[in-house]
Nucleic acid binder design. Structure first.
Length: 417
RNA sequence: GCGGCUCUGGUGAAGUGGUUAACACGUCGGAUUGUGGCUCCGAUAUGCGUGGGUUCGAUUCCCACGAGUCGCCCCA
C-alpha cells in the first residue's frame, strides 16, 4: 500500500520524462507561433467556480470532482479542467484592460475521479488554449487549426476532426424542445440512460452509443433547422475558413460537448486507434461562461487536449523521438588518490559546462569500464597511479576505442565536442 | 458507478494440490592482479497481488479486497 501510488495516478519516470519535455516544448513553440501566451493558474480553486463554470448536472461536477474542506472551512476543488480557472484569472487580473482579444495557453495536471483505464487517469495532463474577447468566427477557425495542425504536425495519421454547432441561448432552447418532443414519442425505444437524459439534457441523447444506432435517430430533429441567423452564419463562416485552410473536417450534428458552457462551435479531434478513449482534443466556443462567472458579456473560444492520449498515440505510431544522448565524460579511477584526483577533474569539467559523471562504487577498473560503456558516455577518463604521478589523464574514446594520455589541463579541450 | 479478463523475481514468462518454482533477458561478481561493448563461469523469488477459507498440505481450488486491462459511462 505504502509503495503504491494512488489509483489512477502515474509516475513519469526518467525514461518517459524526456518525451514529456519534448512534447511540452513543441506545444510552447506552437503557441508562440499562433500568438498565445502561457498562463499558470492554481491547481485548486473554490468549488463554486467549477459548479458555476462547468455547470451542475454535468458528470464532471456531480460525480468526478476531488472536493474537500480546507482548514479554514472553505470548499476547495482540485481543478477538473482549466477553462474556468483561466476565465477567473482573466477577470481577477483584468487582462481585458489593454487589448480586446486575450490569447492564453496552459499546460498542467487536471483531476477527475473516473474509473481508470488506458488513456484515462485521475490525475492527467492537458494543454489548452483560450481566446477571450472576440466573437469573430475566424478565431474559432484559428483555434481549430492550431489543434489540427499541431496533431498533424506530430505525424499522427487517422485523425478525425468533427465539428458542429450547438446554438446559442436564442436558438438552442428551440432545438431542445423539439428534441424532447421527438424523443418522448420514442421513449419506449430509448435506453435507460437516455430516458433520464430526456429531462435533464436531451442533447446528450444524440451522442448515445446505444441509441445512436437506432433507426429513429435518423429522423431526429436537426440543429440546422433551429439555428438563429447569427448562429447559422457563424457556423458557415467557420466552415468557410476551415475549408480555405485545407482542413479535412466532418460535420457531425450529433456532436455535443459535455460541459454546459459551450455555445455555437463545438469540435473534437479523435484518434480511433486509442479505443474507448479516442478523443484527443476537444473544445469550442463558450460565449456565456464569462458572464456566468461574474464578468461582462464576453465571447470566447478554446480547446483542451489530453497529453497522455497524445503520447499514447505517438507511441502507437512510433513517432516518439529517440532518447537524447547521454553525458560526455565518465571518470574511471583506481586507487584512493586517483579518486580524489578524478573528483577534482569531474568538478572542473562540470564547471566548464562539460557533462561528466563517475562510478562512486569503488569497483574494479574493469567494472568501472563496464559502467562507462553502459552509461553511453562518449569518453572514459582513466586515472590510476601513473596518471596521478604524472598529472595526466588517459582519455579513451568509447566509440572508436582509441586512447591517448594527455596532461590534465588539456582534458577539457580534448573532450569538448 | 457497472460488467468481462488478468495478477508468479528488476523484466518477459514456464509450471504443479505435496517440485531444489523451469527458461530467457537484466543486474552483480569473476575468467592471474590498469580498460568496456563478444564469449565463458558463478550468484541472483524461504516467494507465486493482499487477506481469509477448503484441505493432512496450497503458488496451484473457493471467497473477498486491491491493482491492471478491455468495454459501458464520461471525457481530454
Amino acid at each position: 500500500m505504502l509503495t503504491n501510488a494512488p489509483r489512477g495516478t502515474k509516475d513519469i519516470l526518467p525514461s518517459q520524462a524526456s518525451n514529456w519535455q519534448w512534447l511540452e516544448n513543441k506545444i510552447r513553440k506552437l503557441c508562440r507561433l499562433y500568438g498565445y501566451e502561457e498562463i499558470r493558474t492554481p491547481t485548486f480553486e473554490h468549488t463554486e467556480l467549477f459548479q458555476r463554470g462547468i455547470g451542475e448536472g454535468t458528470d464532471v461536477v456531480d460525480k468526478e470532482m476531488y472536493t474537500f474542506t480546507d482548514r479554514g472551512d472553505r470548499s476547495i476543488t482540485l481543478r477538473p479542467e482549466n477553462t474556468a480557472s483561466v476565465v477567473r484569472a482573466y477577470l481577477q487580473n483584468k487582462l481585458y484592460a489593454n487589448t480586446g482579444l486575450v490569447k492564453l495557453f496552459y499546460i498542467g495536471s487536471m483531476f477527475r475521479y473516473d474509473r481508470p483505464q488506458a488513456g484515462r487517469l485521475r490525475e492527467f495532463h492537458q494543454f489548452g488554449v483560450e481566446a477571450l474577447g472576440e466573437k469573430n468566427p475566424a478565431v474559432d477557425a484559428e483555434i481549430i487549426l492550431l489543434a489540427w495542425d499541431f496533431l498533424k504536425g506530430l505525424g499522427l495519421d487517422d485523425l478525425k476532426l468533427k465539428i458542429n454547432t450547438v446554438g446559442c441561448p436564442a436558438c438552442r432552447p428551440i432545438f431542445r424542445r423539439k428534441l424532447t418532443e421527438y424523443f418522448t414519442e420514442e421513449a419506449d425505444e430509448l435506453c435507460g440512460d437516455c430516458r433520464r437524459r430526456l429531462e435533464k439534457n436531451p442533447l446528450r441523447i444524440l451522442d448515445c452509443k446505444i441509441d445512436g444506432l437506432k433507426d429513429f435517430m435518423d429522423d431526429a430533429p436537426k440543429i440546422e433547422t433551429c439555428l438563429c441567423d447569427e448562429c447559422r452564419e457563424h457556423f458557415n463562416d467557420v466552415k468557410k475558413f476551415l475549408t480555405a485552410a485545407g482542413v479535412d473536417f466532418v460535420i457531425d450534428n450529433r456532436l455535443v460537448r459535455g460541459l454546459d458552457y459551450y455555445t455555437k462551435t463545438a469540435f473534437e479531434i479523435q484518434y480511433a486507434p486509442l479505443g474507448a478513449q479516442s478523443a484527443v482534443a476537444g473544445g469550442g466556443r463558450y460565449d456565456g461562461l464569462i458572464r456566468e462567472i461574474g464578468g461582462t458579456d464576453t465571447p470566447a473560444v478554446g480547446f483542451a487536449a489530453g497529453l497522455e492520449r497524445i503520447l499514447l498515440a505517438l507511441e502507437l505510431q512510433g513517432l516518439l523521438p529517440a532518447q537524447d544522448k547521454k553525458i560526455t565524460a565518465f571518470m574511471v579511477a583506481s586507487g584512493s588518490e586517483a579518486e580524489t584526483y578524478a573528483f577534482n577533474l569531474l568538478t572542473d569539467l562540470r564547471r566548464k559546462n562539460i557533462s561528466a559523471t563517475m562510478d562512486f562504487g569503488k569497483k574494479s577498473m574493469k567494472a568501472q569500464m563496464k559502467s562507462a560503456a553502459k552509461s553511453g558516455a562518449k569518453f572514459a577518463l582513466i586515472i590510476g597511479d601513473d596518471e596521478v604521478a604524472t598529472s595526466t589523464v588517459t582519455i579513451k574514446n568509447l566509440e572508436t576505442a582509441a586512447q591517448e594520455k594527455v596532461p590534465v589541463a588539456e582534458v577539457p579541450d580534448k573532450v569538448r565536442d
